[in-house]
Design a protein around this nucleic acid. Structure first.
Lengths: 195, 195
DNA sequence: TCCTATTTGTAGTGAAAGATACAAATAGGA
DNA sequence: TCCTATTTGTATCTTTCACTACAAATAGGA
């Protein structure tokens, strides 16, 4: 009963995600969202609830697609070292892809003042970072326990170093990106960590 | 001849810097600036020219004070390794300082969409990053040429790794800061690089 | 003292932000 | 077919944004 929805919810989420990915949270206006999705304020607030709710839904969607790619590259390789190398490979491929809307993954874009100043959005950022950290940490622990990495290695700490460096990479790419130079510094970084 | 300026320009710059440092460029409104500085629109546009011009002046001021601190820590230590450790020490002290307005240095805050989308501001960011990179790189080269670091070490690449990691550190601190944990990961990072 | 250059305070500009009010349109169930 | 629930489009709201217009105030120079 009641009138049927006239637009594709999933497609709307997809288009909104690209917009947020490109311009950030505060940097994307409701007008832009409405125009790109192709709906009016009525439909927007009726179905998508609010800008904040939509952003949250987009982040969820993003992590279930892009995030899973990186997690897969990390976990499916034979060793942690190769997994982490593969993960950075996925990041570089993403930076090179002209289809990708920004040289900043959404997780990195979320670590910004405008997002962190809204309590419920901040919680989402903290959760995302925690999940990322846990994934990398677990992969390192597996290899260490199998004797592929030194017993003294602290998975938690090394995982922190890796995700911190990844955060920095995205930011630096935003300012000035050059693939060969990035490949060189990633190689130097991972070699240093003994991976 | 003409009426004299009634407010302290340097103090205004200082207060504005703290505001921009805390809230970012787009995140700081003209109203906030006026209130904190304690002047009206008339004085603002007459002396400080515009929000953009003021931001540029604040960045310059910031680099001449905060930036120099880090550069000094880096250059005055006996070795590059100790210098870089000292530099990260300065960063952590800054993160701990309750007086400091944000857990993000202004250089890191500048690497954001809202700043980079304005061509003249973007240029400033690129210049700042370049200067930082050149400083670290030069310090590494000195030590390598003196035989304190392996001949095979590429100062440019290692400097890139270091400033990228520093960028990431600021971002991570913005989300969740804990000094002991940060000290541990910085130690692991630098040990890995052989510094 | 008068003139002129400059600063200062007040008021107001137009644009854009996110969100809302509400009637018209449209679906299924009785 | 009528009723009711839901969506949709339009118009509008309030707030805030960076910025400007302009007259009143205030300094030094003649």
């Amino acid at each position: 009963m009641g009138r049927a929805i006239a637009f594709d919810y999933e497609r709307a989420l997809e288009k909104a995600t690209r917009l947020f990915w490109k311009g950030g949270y505060a940097g994307t206006s409701l007008r832009e969202l409405l125009t790109v999705i192709g709906i009016g304020e009525g439909s927007f607030y009726n179905t998508l609830k609010s800008k904040k709710q939509l952003y949250l839904a987009c982040v969820k969607r993003y992590e279930e697609t892009e995030g899973r790619k990186r997690a897969h590259a990390l976990m499916s390789a034979p060793t942690a070292g190769e997994g982490i190398r593969a993960m950075f490979g996925v990041i570089l491929d993403c930076l090179d892809d002209p289809q990708v809307p920004s040289r900043l993954c959404m997780m990195a874009a979320m670590a910004a003042e405008d997002v962190l100043s809204e309590p419920d959005l901040r919680q989402r950022v903290e959760d995302s970072i925690e999940t990322f950290h846990a994934t990398v940490s677990e992969r390192l622990r597996q290899d260490r326990d199998m004797g592929l990495l030194p017993k003294t290695l602290d998975p938690q700490t090394i995982a922190s170093v890796i995700i911190t460096y990844a955060q920095g990479l995205w930011r630096m790419a935003l300012v000035d990106y050059d693939r060969p130079r990035f490949e060189r510094q990633i190689a130097a970084f991972l070699t240093g960590l003994g991976l």
